[in-house]
């Protein structure tokens, strides 16, 4: 299954933005499997970030994870203040305590402009971004979270398998 649409300038990117190796994660901030994958991805990017472009797209399952969407919007609102990845990390690192209030506290800790942040989380453009990510996942055959795509193709495995793949391919 192929990633649709391909990675573009609407995506949040970390690592080497010009790398040939492009990894996309579809994730849900309240999904425990995504929470467990997060430190593995961090370690992977610490080690292979210079050779890897990493993208995160939102895939919130809102009916079983009611805080997934508010968390996704908080990360997108942080992105408007150029702090997407800081918020992304902070949410996953505090996942067991996820709450609407926590999202505001994290925004405070990251020293975001809170008034702006409070306004931004209700912006329809941010809702559209999250919906667009979800729709992209749906059309790309995402069947659960986290789902990874390597160079546009669905990767049949979890974060640990991905780490191993990178380790063996760079040896």
């Amino acid at each position: 299954m192929l990633l649709k649409p391909a990675v573009d300038n609407h995506d949040h990117v970390q690592g080497n933005t010009t790398a040939d190796l492009i990894i996309v994660e579809f994730g849900d901030y309240q999904c425990p499997h995504c929470g467990a994958a997060h430190p593995i991805i961090k370690e992977m990017m610490n080690k292979f970030g210079s050779q890897t472009k990493f993208v995160f797209r939102n895939f919130p399952l809102t009916e079983i994870h009611p805080l997934a969407r508010p968390a996704a919007l908080a990360a997108e609102a942080a992105a408007l203040q150029n702090r997407f990845w800081e918020m992304h990390d902070a949410i996953f690192e505090h996942q067991p305590f996820l709450a609407e209030n926590l999202l505001l506290q994290l925004a405070g800790k990251l020293q975001l402009n809170i008034d702006q942040f409070r306004k931004d989380i209700h912006q329809s453009a941010l809702a559209a971004k999250v919906d667009g990510d979800f729709e992209s996942g749906m059309r790309s055959g995402v069947n659960g979270t986290p789902s990874f795509f390597v160079n546009g193709k669905k990767f049949d495995g979890g974060a640990g398998d991905l780490f191993e793949l990178l380790q063996s391919s760079t040896e």
């Binding site: 299954m1 749906m138 059309r139 790309s140 055959g141 995402v142 069947n143 659960g144």
Partner: peptide, 10 residues
């Protein structure tokens, strides 16, 4: 054992 997702349906 494999969840087929929704891309085929769409």
């Amino acid at each position: 054992a494999i969840n087929p997702g929704a891309d085929g349906i769409l």
